[in-house]
Design a protein around this nucleic acid. Structure first.
Lengths: 212, 212
DNA sequence: TGTACATCAGTGAACGCGCGTTCACTGATGTAC
DNA sequence: TGTACATCAGTGAACGCGCGTTCACTGATGTAC
């Protein structure tokens, strides 16, 4: 029944609504998820929603910000640069598990086309998070902060988003699996090229000496 | 006012509804577009909708099939394989024009996350079209129908979908533009590698002879 | 520390609205003779 | 070829339903004294 809660309880409830909403948005889409449905899933009645948020739009923005933060944190957890960390993350995010479980999956893949039409706050939250991801992947790819590494980071993330998006859309299971395999293969190759290009003078001059 | 139409008129009206729906779905999303809205945009009242389609779901499937067909046709228009046709298409579909004009843009990018949740008919239509695109791009990339060319085709299409999706989401205009530039650059590089790998024996053996 | 009161998180009914869908009706088309 | 009639594309009002949002109410919390 209705009663005032402690500030700690209130803050916890607010976080629970955001987390529940994020999962529902990723599973059934933003427009496909009602405020009452979110509140029920969070164990509350729908009427209390507006004690925490001024509108559904505000919840969308906060849920997306929360999801992007989570992915940025996950990416930051393995700070060491180099091939192992990079490939491990590619393998993880392009796995069948991440394709089949939308709750643990990427918010950009799960809500992509709706985000392009979202309001300014939501797009800004997603965009900020994505820019952080670009910087993190850039550091995985290169100790030096060169422009080519940043290009590769951007291309890597784009490719991952596209491969996972298509992998979820197709009704051909073999093709769905293979799209992920191909993306993993090609992005690993990209990394090899990067490393050959990055610690260059030694290896390249060696080859040149051999060749001449 | 109400009256029976000729069979030709009826067929034309049906096509007009599908075309109008496809544009509306790409612009405002599938869930974001009402049946009445589509009919009004097609110059009709909403009541007549069910003379042409048994449900909104059926219209969604037909609109997506129509859009995919259109993109398959566009891709087929330039049948000649090789670098020029490939790069020209990449440049076109990854242009700011295609990003900013959702009506002419790709249905997979515009409806991506909604398609993953769509019914079996819709997903099948999109999937079939995409498989055709993969085959067409494979032929652009290689006269021989080898597996590596098909991998490159799949990776190319994935990357294009991802780059355009993110380019539409971000609220950072410079980043939005640059994502497309990077995708174009990296995919052009992929093509160069393909060509070096494809007509190989000559060039590669030459290098080997020099090196040894 | 104890008492009195304002605050406000949460409830559940209610609001207007737009959704997908149905239906009785209209009247030119296409068909049967 | 001309006449009579069934067909059915399109109209516009109406349907139940679920949406986002509002509101009067409840009662433990947090505050003022």
């Amino acid at each position: 029944m209705g009663m005032k809660r402690s500030k700690a309880d209130t803050a916890e409830t607010r976080k629970r609504i955001i987390k529940t909403a994020a999962q529902a948005f990723k599973t059934n889409g933003i427009e496909g998820t009602g405020v009452a449905e979110i509140m029920a899933a969070a164990g509350l009645s729908h009427g209390g929603f507006y004690r925490h948020f001024s509108s559904k739009e505000q919840l969308i923005a906060e849920a997306c910000a929360s999801e992007m933060d989570h992915f940025v944190c996950m990416a930051n957890e393995s700070v060491e640069p180099g091939a192992e960390a990079f490939i491990a993350h590619i393998e993880k995010f392009l796995s069948a598990e991440y394709r089949d479980d939308k709750v643990i999956g990427c918010p950009i893949v799960a809500m992509g086309s709706e985000l392009a039409r979202a309001d300014a706050d939501t797009r800004h939250a997603v965009s900020r998070g994505y820019e952080e991801l670009i910087e993190i992947v850039t550091k995985w790819l290169s100790t030096a902060d060169d422009a080519a590494a940043r290009d590769d980071a951007m291309f890597t993330l784009s490719s991952m988003v596209g491969a996972m998006t298509m992998s979820r859309i197709t009704d051909n299971p073999a093709l769905s699996d293979y799209m992920l395999v191909v993306a993993k293969k090609r992005l690993a190759q990209l990394l090899v090229q990067r490393q050959n290009a990055a610690k260059p003078a030694v290896d390249r001059s060696a080859k040149v000496r051999l060749a001449s």
